[in-house]
Amino acid sequence: MEHLLKVDQLKVNFNTYGGEVKAVRDVSFHVDQGEIVAIVGESGSGKSVTVQSIMGLIPSPPGMIKGGSIQFEGKDLLTLSKRQMRKIKGSKIGMIFQDPMTSLNPTMKVGKQIAEALITHRNFSKANAKNKAVEMLKLVGIPNPEARFQQYPHEYSGGMRQRAMIAIALACSPDLLIADEPTTALDVTIQAQVLELMKELQKKMNTAIILITHDLGVVAETAQRVLVMYGGVVVESASVMELFENPRHPYTWGLLQSIPDTDTSEKKRLVPIAGSPPDLFSPPKGCPFAPRCKYAMDICLEEMPTDYDISDGHTAKCWLNDERAPHPETFARLGETENA
């Protein structure tokens, strides 16, 4: 079956006064129709740059896509002109940005911002666009949508602004929705409501979703598959169930240790990952996580590991999974020890 989206060996660099930042290095993954795929990792791991590349939002200069391909519905997005990409953005691919207050136009009424997408991409008349915009506001759970249509973003609460962003992104019924940390600025209650709303709309519209987050708790509640990124590289990829039950990369173990256990009354200290992220001006030639990994071997510092197939659909870029590693049967159980 052909994938809805297929990213292959994507490389993205940025020219800065300090040198060239290698932000994304040989990233490959796919998304199928109706699927929710999460991309997790700490700040600076390359998550947002990856999805911005899909949307054609990498500013050039200073950004440069140095290699790879992004196939969407059989077309390589990197070969399209700006005009061709404008037809796809908002129509075929929608995006929810991290901060709705800076993403919404403060000088334009919210309803008009939703209607604008319909007029531009679906050739709606102004009257039909208004009716559809009101319908979208109601769909995302905004009360009294007719009145809210006439209001400006500053008259909305934080949660309502995020819902409005979802309405704009979904107005043209895109095949793919990219949500870049859509709940970061929201309180816990509103966060749960927004995530539940996204899942409901995904089921109703069969829209595929790429969810960018640093919260594995959100991943467990929302996604079917997950990519773990570190230092501009996908270090592990698996179904959500497989990743939580059988993590096979030390960085993933570290992320899992940072999740509070709410199922027990026993107090457990959350263990931070010691050390600092890699310098992407001059990325390490070996595994990017090796300097912070207490299980690192000499080869980890010298050579980038390949993707090891752990099981169907589960890969980990870690030398510990190599049969030549010392005591591989012990290393295979390290994840269980780390998260015990």
Rank of each mutant, 00 (worst) to 15 (best):
Q191V: 09
K199Q: 15
Q193N: 11
T222G: 04
I190C: 04
L211G: 08
L255D: 01
V240A: 04
A192L: 06
G232N: 10
Q224K: 15
Q224N: 14
I190Q: 02
Q202S: 13
M198V: 05
A192S: 14
L211D: 08
Y251D: 06
K203C: 07
G231Q: 07
V194K: 04
L201H: 09
Y230D: 09
L216H: 05
A223L: 09
L201M: 14
L195E: 05
M229T: 04
Q224T: 12
D215C: 13
V188R: 03
L255M: 10
Y230H: 12
E245M: 13
V228R: 00
G254F: 02
V226Y: 00
P247L: 10
L211I: 14
A208F: 08
L186K: 06
T189R: 07
G254C: 05
T222W: 05
Q202G: 07
Q193H: 12
P247W: 07
T252K: 02
D187M: 06
F244C: 03
A220V: 07
G232C: 12
Y251I: 09
V234T: 11
E242F: 05
E200G: 08
V226N: 00
D187S: 07
V218N: 09
K199S: 12
V240F: 01
F244G: 01
Q224M: 12
K199A: 08
S237L: 00
G217L: 13
R248H: 15
I212W: 08
I212G: 05
D187P: 05
V234W: 01
Q193K: 13
G231W: 03
M241T: 15
Y230G: 07
K204H: 12
G231H: 07
Q191G: 07
T222V: 15
L195F: 09
I210L: 11
E242A: 14
L186T: 05
A208W: 03
